[in-house]
């Protein structure tokens, strides 16, 4: 009986452990199978580099270059907002904040990450967009700039908390050595602690970026939705995720349009996968560099 129970538990946990792998494979297979027809029809290169996305025209055109540009410009813009604010708050929390301020600020950062993305989108549409429109005198507040600002704010918690972890991993002995040489707190932080945590900080930034690239709801609500290559950061754009979300309903199952949306999903998946692999490699190197691997 006991033998049987043990075998049973073993099985249950094995199955549990393999579920992620199972779903991952399933997702890849579906993406490939559904995305393949469009890649065959227009060719992968043309699909990626084509500048016209007219999926419902006759003849339809399936070039996702504008969508890729939209995703990247929003992601990069968001980074411009999120990196200084995220890294800055981490440095402050880690080194400068007293116990009392820490107790207020740290939960605040964590709660920010708990705000549902639709709420961020709502906030972007109702508050940020009109504001941007007025300040910069642009035709619409729903554009790449607004999307970048809102997404940047969304990415702050990811970057801040991962950066703070990275700072915490820096051995105390480095700090002591620096102080013992007569360095000030600030010098120690900027010249010793931050560089020693450098790879951890880059990991934080890449993961924040990967979150932004994959984010859908918010970006759909605030980016404006024009599938053309933007000329300025104040032009409306249509990132890959919002394209899928917006068009899935109207695309006829089994059509080329339907297949193209899956192919976009595949591209998106490969992009975030690359970002994650890069960050994984960086943090591995970093652990070796600091001797944390031993």
């Amino acid at each position: 009986m006991i033998r049987f129970k043990e075998a049973l538990y073993r099985w249950i946990f094995t199955v549990m452990a393999f579920t992620s792998l199972f779903f991952l494979l399933g997702i890849i297979i579906v993406l490939l199978r559904e995305g393949l027809p469009i890649l065959m029809a227009v060719g992968p290169f043309k699909f990626l580099s084509g500048v016209h996305w007219y999926p419902t025209y006759d003849p339809a055109e399936f070039g996702i270059f504008p969508l890729i540009i939209a995703s990247l410009s929003v992601a990069i813009g968001a980074m411009v907002v999120a990196v200084p604010l995220g890294v800055g708050s981490a440095l402050y929390l880690h080194e400068l904040a007293g116990e009392r301020i820490r107790h207020i600020l740290k939960p605040a950062v964590e709660i920010l990450s708990a705000v549902p993305s639709i709420v961020f989108g709502f906030f972007g549409m109702m508050i940020v967009a009109p504001f941007v429109q007025k300040i910069f005198h642009v035709p619409t507040g729903l554009n790449a700039f607004t999307a970048a600002v809102v997404m940047g704010i969304m990415a702050i918690p990811t970057i801040a908390s991962l950066t703070e972890d990275a700072l915490g991993f820096v051995p105390r002995s480095f700090k002591e050595a620096s102080y013992a040489l007569g360095a000030s707190r600030w010098q120690t932080l900027i010249k010793i602690v931050l560089p020693a945590a450098g790879s951890g900080v880059s990991t934080a930034i890449i993961l924040g970026m990967s979150r932004i690239v994959g984010e859908t709801m918010t970006v759909l609500m605030v980016s404006g939705g024009a599938a053309v290559i933007p000329h300025s950061i104040f032009d409306p754009v249509r990132p890959m995720t919002s394209t899928i979300a917006a068009e899935m309903g109207e695309a006829v199952t089994g059509s080329l349009h339907y297949s193209a949306l899956f192919a976009i999903g595949l591209v998106l998946f490969l992009m975030t996968l690359t970002l994650n692999i890069i960050s994984e490699n960086i943090s591995k190197k970093y652990r070796i560099k600091l001797g944390l691997d031993r």
């Binding site: 002995s173 480095f174 002591e176 013992a180 007569g182 010098q187 010249k191 560089p195």
Partner: peptide
Amino acid sequence: RRVGMVFQKPNPFPKTIFQNIAYGLEI
């Protein structure tokens, strides 16, 4: 700066040999 310290476990910075020594001067 007047009272220097050497610790039990060697704790060079994760920088080059040169930078390790130059650091104290630079700060």
